[in-house]
């Protein structure tokens, strides 16, 4: 299942964002950020303690089941009395959740997390980016492994010269996508597809901001 992968913003950044905002309502989420332990019930409780320690007033807190869902507004309506007492909503969800709450309640929001990527859990406590949703999928020629996402440089013609022992030049903990692709294509007996000279990528898959409508025809 795909997940929105997040990490906490630094205390310093949150302090700056909350400067002058003393009455705070905290929102967490029961889905992705619970899995990543960045915005589930324990993290929301810890944030409340930290805010109280720094002299803030917490008017209330809630962990909604799926922050990015349209039903979030109905759950938050039940908390409206405490929300209205707050200067700001400190939202411990991914940016989808923050923007959903912001558009539903039209109130001042501060994100407590940075949204890193859309990925999946690949091991206990480990999350990997799988797809950058580029709009021009090429994995039919790369053994089902995406170099646009998994190669740091998004290269489509094979590895750069920085790859070393199957790892990426920026981080020896990150796999070289092209070593993975090479190994997979070798296993599949399809190495010829790696030998094909690929033209420049089409970066116009869907110009940002993305918008898509199912054809009415």
């Amino acid at each position: 299942m795909i997940r929105s992968i997040t990490k906490p913003k630094s205390k310093e950044e949150i302090d700056t964002l909350l400067d002058g905002l003393n009455r705070i309502f905290i929102i967490g989420c029961g889905t992705c950020v619970t899995l990543t332990r960045t915005g589930g019930a324990p993290e929301v409780a810890a944030m409340k303690e930290a805010l109280l320690d720094s002299g803030k007033l917490v008017t209330g807190q809630v962990v909604v089941p799926v922050a990015c869902d349209n039903l979030t507004s109905e759950i938050l309506n039940e908390e409206m009395e405490k929300i209205e007492q707050a200067d700001v909503l400190l939202i411990m969800t991914c940016a989808f959740g923050v923007q959903t709450v912001s558009s539903q309640l039209k109130r001042m929001v501060v994100p407590a997390l940075d949204t890193l990527f859309i990925g999946k859990e690949t091991g206990y406590g480990q999350f990997n980016e799988i797809c950058t949703q580029c709009g021009t999928c090429i994995i039919g020629e790369t053994g089902g492994i995406c170099p646009v996402t998994n190669c740091h440089k998004g290269l489509v013609n094979g590895p750069c010269g920085g790859t070393n022992q199957g790892k990426c030049e920026i981080d020896s903990n990150k796999d070289c996508a092209w070593t993975l692709i090479y190994n997979r294509l070798t296993e599949l007996g399809r190495l010829d597809s790696m030998r094909k000279l690929q033209g420049p990528r089409n970066f116009l898959g869907e110009p940002t901001p993305g918008k898509y409508e199912i054809s009415k025809s």
Binding site: N157, G158, P159, G161, T163, N164, Q165, G166, W178, T179, Y182, L191, M194, R195, L197
Partner: peptide
């Protein structure tokens, strides 16, 4: 890079 490890992916790029 003649001494890359693994070498064959580099050689495929070299040929391209």
């Amino acid at each position: 890079t003649p001494e890359a490890k693994p070498l064959e992916p580099q050689l495929i790029k070299f040929e391209k």
